[in-house]
Amino acid sequence: MMQTTRRSLLAAGGALLAAPAFAQANWPDKPIRFVVPFTPGGTTDILARVLAPRLTQGLGVSVVVENRGGAGGTVGHEVVVRAAPDGNTIMLGHIGTLGVNPSLYPRLSFDPIGGVAPVSMVALVPNILAVHPSVPARTLQELIALARAKPGELTYGSAGNGSAAHIAAAALGHAAGVEFTHVPYRGSGPMANDLIAGQINFTMTGGTVVMPLVRDGRLRALGVSSRARMQADPSIATIAEQGLPGFETTQWYCVVTTAGVPAPIIARLNAEVHRAMNDAEVRSRLAAEGAESAPGTPEELGRFMRAEVARWAEVIRITGMKAD
């Protein structure tokens, strides 16, 4: 009798140990939420909607983009941190949510870095400094001179506090020694609409958002924040070569999931992100906007995120940048 009981207990224990492995082997078995922590229309949303159908194809289940904007990306970020660690919730994070927000929002109710598991870098996107045609400046130096003559009167729009445009323009003002006024929006779409209408003076955000507007003449590009000029439009000078040497605020985008997701699932997600971002059509589309496909390993992304948190903590300390 005792032997039978012991065998039953051992069998039950083995079944419990085997259950997680079975779940991993059969993952994914239901649709995956792909959280975008901003409203539709911005670079994060655009990249997620390029990536989602290719992940759907590779994983064999629907990967559904879910926009959860608010509070500089922290609302959507928390959704992912609080999700079950089963790999069925992922997020397209970026320089703001994973590099800046840990310092810009020091009293978050969740751990923005420890609460997620890195999957893969996705892309690097240069910021374009673009003004409304009514702004009497055709070069960066002319814009800086205008800001010096009218401290605080030039307004720039962003997708919200902690967004890439907020970070980039604040860094530009600090580097140039001038004061700009930040106007945060609930997403890049509403911001771009107001910029086109002349309600704000400029923005400094991803090429995927502003380059179509520059090409059709609704905005004027004064500079690009990358280290080198964009192949997509080499006529746009870098900010560094216009009197601010060393200036660079390239946006970065990555896929993360909830902390505690098993390593085999992260490895599968990583492989599918690589496959998608190495697709010739995707790379061509990104290159047209000056962006670069940049998939990597989870370990590389983890190290990069920690370095970016340290970098931007110092920038926030020096500039006094706050969540307006």
Rank of each mutant, 00 (worst) to 15 (best):
R6H: 12
G290E: 04
L219I: 08
S109G: 11
A71Y: 10
G42T: 01
A232P: 00
P136I: 06
E308S: 02
R303M: 08
G114C: 11
G189L: 13
G152A: 05
L9S: 00
A259L: 09
V116R: 07
L9C: 02
Q141A: 04
V61K: 09
F304T: 04
L17T: 06
E289K: 05
A147C: 12
L222C: 03
E248V: 07
N278C: 12
L222A: 04
P37C: 07
P212C: 00
V209N: 04
R107L: 04
T56I: 00
A175M: 06
T319P: 14
E153M: 13
T297G: 09
P234F: 01
V178L: 07
V135I: 07
S8F: 07
T4R: 15
V65C: 01
G177K: 14
L98V: 07
N161L: 06
A130Y: 03
S284M: 14
T139D: 00
R283V: 12
A170S: 15
I265Y: 10
M305H: 02
Y185V: 07
I167D: 11
L129R: 06
A11W: 07
I265V: 15
N127Y: 05
V256K: 08
L244M: 14
V122L: 10
T203M: 05
A323G: 10
L195I: 03
A291Q: 11
E153C: 05
V63L: 02
G187S: 07
R107K: 11
R33F: 00
A25N: 05
P106C: 08
P118Q: 05
G72W: 05
D233S: 02
I236K: 13
I239T: 13
D29Y: 01
A168C: 15
I46N: 04
E292A: 15
V261S: 11
T56Q: 03
I167L: 15
V61R: 13
T97L: 08
G58I: 12
L98E: 14
G70R: 09
R220Q: 14
E300I: 02
P20D: 09
R49E: 13
A21W: 14
P298V: 07
G96F: 01
V50R: 11
G320L: 12
S62I: 06
G114S: 12
L269M: 14
D86T: 10
I113E: 03
V131H: 00
G99T: 02
P212H: 00
L108S: 13
H274D: 14
S109C: 04
I90P: 00
G58S: 15
G115W: 11
R148G: 03
A170I: 10
L195A: 03
W27P: 11
E153T: 10
R68Y: 11
D324I: 14
A117F: 11
L301S: 08
W27F: 11
A240F: 09
F202I: 00
D324M: 13
H94C: 08
Y185R: 05
K30H: 10
A171Y: 05
G198T: 03
E78N: 14
L92K: 02
P295I: 02
L108I: 06
L195F: 02
G217T: 08
S284I: 10
N201F: 04
R54W: 03
P234T: 07
G187C: 05
V256Y: 14
F110S: 09
S226E: 13
